[in-house]
Amino acid sequence: MEKAPKYLQIFVVVYLVFLYAPALLLPVFAFNDSTIISFPLSNFTFDWFLGLRNESALHDALGNSLLVALSSAILSTCLGVLASRASARHEFFAKKSIISFLLLPLVLPEIIIAVSLLVVLSQMGFALSLWTVVLGHTLVCMPFSIAILTSAFNNMDQSLEEASFDLGETGWGTFRRVILPLVAPGIVSSLLITFTLSLDEFIIAFFLTGTGATLPVYIWGQLRFPNKLPNVMALGLLLLLFSLLLLSVGEYFRRRTKQMAGTDSFTGD
């Protein structure tokens, strides 16, 4: 491969610094013994992390977020399984358009989704609650589920299903004994990634939440109090690490789906 020109290499470095430097400030100030977020740094401390233990509002928000993230992850993955299975195995009217519409929230600005959901839900007389947030999150998470699961279903050799059917198994039995085990890594990956997305999502949660705030909404609220800023930094760092962990595990499972599917290549003996 040809080596990239110098100016492109510099561009990439600048780009990456611009993208990640702010996030790198999180760990720096999370351990800094001063309420003011600025250089020079003073002493090293764990106080901001320890302080998080006493914030009961934070604990409520964390509980809310976990509930919302878990519900959205399960809902969007279930819907994703249905949609992916349908698109991978069946032909139906306007298939391409329908799939495109399902993937639309991927490119639609979240603020538009949030505002329109708010308008529709209040017009229909729904009270805002965590469940309205789950609804919104499911909508934006589903395209990710569909994208991950469609490749999992597509990678599966269709004759495996036919073989199962041929050996006397029913449709449901085939799903349970063959399809599910083979797409399981895809499902785990989808659950983890949508969970992370929902956990970090702010705009929709901000608009659709009722009385109970989710974690990002809580953090937003905390920004009004300058002396709480180091706490927020500490919390942000924990969230960042947790998200990275979930995404890595999710990616591991997504790759395993691909490996599982590569079963048709073999050598003669």
């Binding site: 050799d157 004759s159 495996l160 036919e162 073989a163 199962s164 041929d166 063959v178 083979l182 599982m260 079963t263 048709d264």
Partner: peptide
């Protein structure tokens, strides 16, 4: 049936 791809459950 014996399938062309054998369809052995991986």
């Amino acid at each position: 049936m014996v399938f062309q791809s054998y369809a052995i459950f991986p």
